[in-house]
Design a protein around this nucleic acid. Structure first.
Lengths: 205, 205, 205, 205
DNA sequence: AATGAATGAGAATTCATTCAT
DNA sequence: AATGAATGAATTCTCATTCAT
């Protein structure tokens, strides 16, 4: 029984990997099931034994990828005790992960992130796990009084993740011609200290 | 002669408006030429007298919209003499514009911004006009010593525009259920002052 | 009145010449009225003032061309008194004409000659003028006892014209890469003397 | 496995036959895929599982037909030992074949034979097989000193095939109103003995 | 469980022709 | 007489999905 389940899972992984390859090179509408089947060395019909339809297969990609992303992230953060260094590490790992998974990056940033149905899909829940993790660290930072307390944690998170997403997106659109990690320090600096001149006074709107 | 030109322009506008309606409700691939023609009350073939093909029509939308966006923006900024207030006004107008043009917002943020071909298209040049304008103001701010000088202007711009784009995108994905302008002060505050606690020291990576 | 007629005729010629250019480069179905209009420097609609429709324009080409072909041929044959030399000259002029009018050659050989409607069209009559001329010469040859008398003139004509058409067609399909006139003597020799060895006896089927 | 291959081949034949019917009645551009599908009692899409596109289907017709033509021809020629009788039989079979396959005749003579792309297509190679066969027989005839040796074999072939093609073409354009085989002896006689009067001397140009 | 042949709806684009100006 | 904007029918090809084997 166990081996059967494993076998099924293996086949699913195999299809999912082919899907990442294919969707990553084009986009949801242009990518074809037949191409994915070919890449996975199976018949087209077989895909429908594991996924309800094309959209189901597509949305299953981030569900699986987020899981491995989070697992790995946990390992990197383990042992770090202050929120500042946790966020720094997280920033680094975030960029490192997409740099080393450009196909998936394209799928997530240029397709999913911009797709209303994805946010309503079941699989979106799994992606939220990461967001929750970030929020937790930010709240820690607020408790440690290193992150401002006059705004809710999720607003703070939006600034950080929004800017990270933006960076990765630009990099993809520039066809990955430069090193995504090159000046990642800059990013955190800007988000942390803001764009204001150090000798300028704090100002609000 | 003049009236003929005007007439042709009018027809083009009419098609462009129908295209915004239709593309705004779905997306490039799903939207159909026949639907656009129907909405514009013309025959399908007529569209091809004014635009080379579907993509040309699609990419012509931001070309036209950016122009009117910039013209209007100029009026709003006129008379403001310091970079801080210019940026504040720009931030406000940016959000105001997309709040009042949600169909176009969807086209620009969820389709164009994520489309490699768009960045290579001729029409992209027209969109750059706005980006140039923002860079100019930021450089002013750096000269006025209100924006940090240790980073290049276009990096600063990326933080601001990246976050604005992110905000608009979220709002669209949440189906415009809240007021995009509601707490726009927050945005500028975060970008300007950063996420760090006021009493925390400046830190870098 | 006369000048008006001439003006009309001139315009017709202008369109016809553009049509030869355009139809000669592609084929009836692929060629477009708009391209012809462009080449003739007139509006599309104007063509319909001079020709009933696309087919009418198309079929009008050989009508006009055959006329000038025959006029010229008459000049070349004038003064020649025996059928042998008349046929020899005709063969030469036939190849010379198509060599110097390749666009028209393509239209006549690759399109018209193979088009059932053309043979039924009014304009086909004008093309027959040439055929009649050839038949006349052949009959002369038969009377002079230089061409065999055991077959009807039009059968003889078919051999000659059939082979000429075939030669021109091959040349066009080979993209005019060799000189159509190069070994035209060969053609007449073969048609006249047949393919049999000189010392072989005459044989029939 | 064998039956599967046979089944696929059968389906291909079925489509090819429908294509001959339809292309034979009109022409490449006018014939529609939907009509062919209808005639073959299959869905339009199915055609594209067996042929790359309309042109591929079109060009596949002579590839297949030539094969069966050549096979049959071989049977007819087998046992004939001299080139004269071989050519006589070939002439007869050529006309017989097209008389009994008028749809295909129309496709080959009125469409293919006049189509530049066809001569460049891969399928044209298969048609060449027949031409090679004819050349071989002609060379035999030259060795047997029954066909003239002062000209290359392929020039001789051109006269024969050119005239045969011409005859079939005329017959098709006259809407097959007479018997193509009726006086086929005439053809060979003319090609063999030439149009010159028997008592006229051999003359060249 | 796996296959892959068959489906058939769907969409962009072209272009001859018309007709109001 | 000349224009050229508008038309809208017509057609190829793609591809997700099904289902009999």
């Amino acid at each position: 029984m166990l081996t059967v389940i494993k076998k099924k899972d293996l086949r699913k992984q195999q299809i999912l990997q082919a899907a990442i390859d294919v969707f990553g090179k084009s986009n949801f509408q242009s990518a074809s099931i037949s191409e994915i089947a070919q890449k996975a060395n199976i018949a087209e019909g077989t895909i429908y034994q594991y996924f309800k339809n094309k959209e189901d297969l597509f949305f299953s990609i981030p569900a699986q990828k987020t899981e491995s992303f989070c697992d790995e992230l946990d390992l990197h953060i383990e042992g770090i005790h202050d929120a500042f260094n946790k966020l720094r590490k997280l920033t680094w790992y975030y960029l490192y992960f997409f740099k080393t998974n450009p196909d998936y990056a394209r799928i997530l940033m240029l397709e999913m992130r911009v797709n209303k149905s994805f946010f309503k899909s079941r699989t979106f829940g799994k992606v939220q796990v990461f967001n929750d993790k970030v929020l937790e660290i930010i709240k820690e930072g607020q408790e440690e009084n290193f992150i401002r307390n006059d705004m809710k944690g999720h607003v703070i998170r939006e600034v950080l993740l929004g800017f990270l997403e933006h960076r990765v997106t630009r990099w993809l659109l520039k066809e990955e011609k430069y090193d995504l990690l090159a000046n990642y320090g800059e990013i955190f600096d800007l988000v942390f200290n803001g764009i204001k001149s150090p000798n300028a006074e704090r100002r609000h709107m």
